[in-house]
């Protein structure tokens, strides 16, 4: 049984979610509800739920304010909002998922499946994870990255990114499925985000996921061939870094 608390300032939204959980997700037990940041904070502390369904805009603050009140977040949460643009923020504060209002039963069921997976994978729940705003949860293997383009918001698994290439102030992402996504942020910003996932900056304009290297060429120029057949130059200054990485890979089966 997954225990849940619902926090939303509109009573009808809380009721709807309770109704829907009863019908579609009988493994979830609602143990409490609240209508504000202040009362929500209190009830989470008192009840210690597995999951919190959390609204963003409330009258005394936002759902993100509520999360930031905790120095240690030892519960999972799902953001529920009518504002699509809050999705980006949802992943920044490590929400397991987000659901748009009006709530689609399929979205709700998918979110609950994600919650059960996370809870099962992490049996050491009493060891609370340190999660603060903007921090990255390294333990979570399917960590996602939100990429916002002019027309769309893409949510990609970091594991699926083959490489990133700088194009002036844009960054071009090459995804495993063959697609590319162009985002108006510099490669530098993504380097900071992706270095903890063992990405390497092998060249001024290239950031690569070592998982997808298929060949390392030393002559005449230093190059990496990626699994999708693309040649990536390696700058002389990064030669040592790349070679030490490849040496490390030699010793293990990947």
């Amino acid at each position: 049984m997954i225990t849940a608390i619902i926090i939303d300032d509109e009573v009808h939204v809380r009721e709807t979610i309770i109704h829907m959980l009863n019908i579609y997700c009988p493994n979830v037990k609602v143990i409490g509800q609240a209508h504000s940041v202040e009362s929500g904070y209190k009830i989470i502390k008192d009840q210690n739920p597995d999951v919190v369904f959390l609204d963003v805009k409330m009258h005394d603050g936002t759902g993100y304010d509520l999360i930031n009140k905790f120095s240690k977040v030892n519960f999972r949460f799902i953001i529920i909002t009518a504002h699509e643009e809050f999705a980006i923020q949802a992943f920044k504060v490590n929400a397991v998922d987000y659901i748009l209002k009006p709530v689609d039963p399929t979205d709700l069921m998918n979110a609950v499946v994600k919650i059960s997976n996370v809870l099962n994978n992490n049996e050491t729940r009493d060891k609370p994870q340190q999660m603060t705003s903007n921090s990255i949860n390294l333990k979570n293997e399917t960590q996602k990255l939100v990429l916002k383009t002019i027309d769309n918001v893409f949510i990609v698994e970091i594991d699926e990114i083959i490489r990133c290439e700088s194009q002036n102030n844009y960054t071009l992402f090459f995804i495993k499925d063959g697609s590319t996504i162009k985002v108006s942020k510099t490669l530098k910003e993504y380097e900071e985000t992706l270095l903890p996932y063992s990405f390497i900056r092998c060249h001024q304009t290239h950031l690569i996921n070592p998982k997808y290297i298929s060949k390392y060429i030393k002559h005449p120029n230093l190059q990496l061939i990626m699994i999708n057949g693309q040649n990536i130059p390696v700058s002389v200054r990064k030669k040592e870094l790349v070679e030490s990485l490849i040496n490390k890979m030699k010793d293990q089966l990947i």
């Binding site: 509109e10 009808h12 939204v13 009721e15 709807t16 109704h19 829907m20 009518a82 504002h83 748009l100 209002k101 009006p102 709530v103």
Partner: peptide
């Protein structure tokens, strides 16, 4: 645009009730 989704969500609550 936000009121559209909020209104629909209120209507949804009557359906589930």
């Amino acid at each position: 645009h936000h009121f559209i989704f909020n209104s629909l969500s209120a209507i949804q609550s009557y359906i589930f009730r």
